[in-house]
């Protein structure tokens, strides 16, 4: 879908991106992560030419991105940013309809698409479509920002720290929805973040950048269990690697079906990290497991958690 071939970008004397080669697969959820100044945002913005690369080649759908008109290229890629960038003088409907209007869709088709997207993002269409951005909460604004990026059914979705300014509860809810949208649509997504937990939660593949170079590329499990360097180990949080590995797996994979145990139950779809927390909080070695309807399905044992990291790598 997107291919970087020895791409570099310099701002003055500062090498923002240094000889980067990277292939982003079709349908993959890629997370670009790194400390401030690692070049992650620059890398993202080079894809839709908000930043022009100095050397190397960037291919989109097999063609060098410079062979496209920048506006045409951008209309084929969804774009969502941190402070949502909603147009304050336009309603929710007009904001979401930005790209479809640029593509000259008929009005009725835009209206239908707005309804569809508001529903997808859990905002009641008739209540919200006529509102202005300042009449929405931060989380709702960000939902509209994501809806706007999705509006013209882009081939790839670019997101620059989309949830950075949100409170933890709202952020978690939106992360879940984004994961759901990705699963359902199979769209390629490239997301920039500096939050390693967000990266571990969402990514099929993590690209960890440091000073404009790739420090490591791999699945969340691999990055956690086999860090390529001290930098990677430090960045993912050396002392919490075990906890984070547990966070990548759900109780469903460890449950002993049919067995029973005492204590407050943990849900099947909870992460093993949450299960660990429940073991410690309740002071028990085993706990009952329930499905989403609250029906008992079995139990999970404290010792079962240990098997998780090894299996995650398999």
């Amino acid at each position: 879908m997107i291919e970087f071939q020895q791409v570099s970008k310099t701002f003055g004397h500062w090498k923002a991106v240094d000889n980067l080669s990277l292939h982003l697969q079709d349908g993959e959820f890629t997370v670009l992560i790194g400390p401030s100044g690692s070049g992650k945002s620059t890398t993202l913005k080079m894809i839709n030419r908000l930043v022009e690369h100095d050397s190397g080649r960037i291919l989109f759908a097999g063609k060098e991105i410079r062979s496209f008109q920048p506006e045409d290229l951008r209309r084929r890629m969804g774009y969502a940013i941190q402070s949502n960038g909603l147009f304050p003088h336009w309603t929710v409907e007009e904001n979401i309809g930005t790209v479809p209007a640029l593509l000259k869709w008929p009005k009725s088709r835009i209206a239908d698409r707005v309804t569809e997207l508001l529903t997808l993002l859990d905002l009641e269409p008739n209540r919200y479509r006529g509102r202005y951005p300042h009449e929405l909460s931060g989380g709702q604004q960000q939902r509209v920002g994501v809806a706007r990026a999705l509006a013209a059914d882009p081939e790839i979705l670019l997101m620059d720290e989309p949830f950075g300014a949100l409170d933890p509860v709202t952020r978690a809810a939106l992360q879940k929805e984004l994961a759901r949208i990705h699963q359902r649509s199979g769209k390629s997504i490239v997301l920039v973040t500096h939050d390693i937990d967000e990266a571990l939660l969402l990514a099929d593949r993590i690209v960890l950048l440091d000073k404009g170079r790739i420090a490591q590329v791999g699945t969340p499990q691999r990055i956690l269990a086999q860090p390529a360097s001290d930098f990677v180990a430090d960045f993912v949080g050396r002392s919490e690697v075990g906890i984070k590995l547990l966070g990548l797996q759900t109780v469903a994979g460890r449950v002993r079906r049919g067995e029973t145990a005492a204590g407050r139950p943990v849900p099947l779809q909870a992460s093993l990290r949450e299960a660990l927390s429940a073991f410690v909080a309740q002071g028990r070695g085993s706990l009952p497991v329930v499905d989403e309807h609250g029906h008992a399905v079995g139990s999970i044992h404290y010792a079962d958690l240990l098997a998780a990291p090894a299996e995650a790598l398999a």
Partner: peptide, 23 residues
């Protein structure tokens, strides 16, 4: 005009004239 709004306008595919006129 907030920089984020301008960047969003460009990033969504508005040409410079449209960014000026509509945003």
């Amino acid at each position: 005009v907030p920089e984020s709004v301008r960047e969003a306008a460009r990033g969504l595919g508005m040409n410079p004239l449209r960014v000026l006129w509509q945003v």
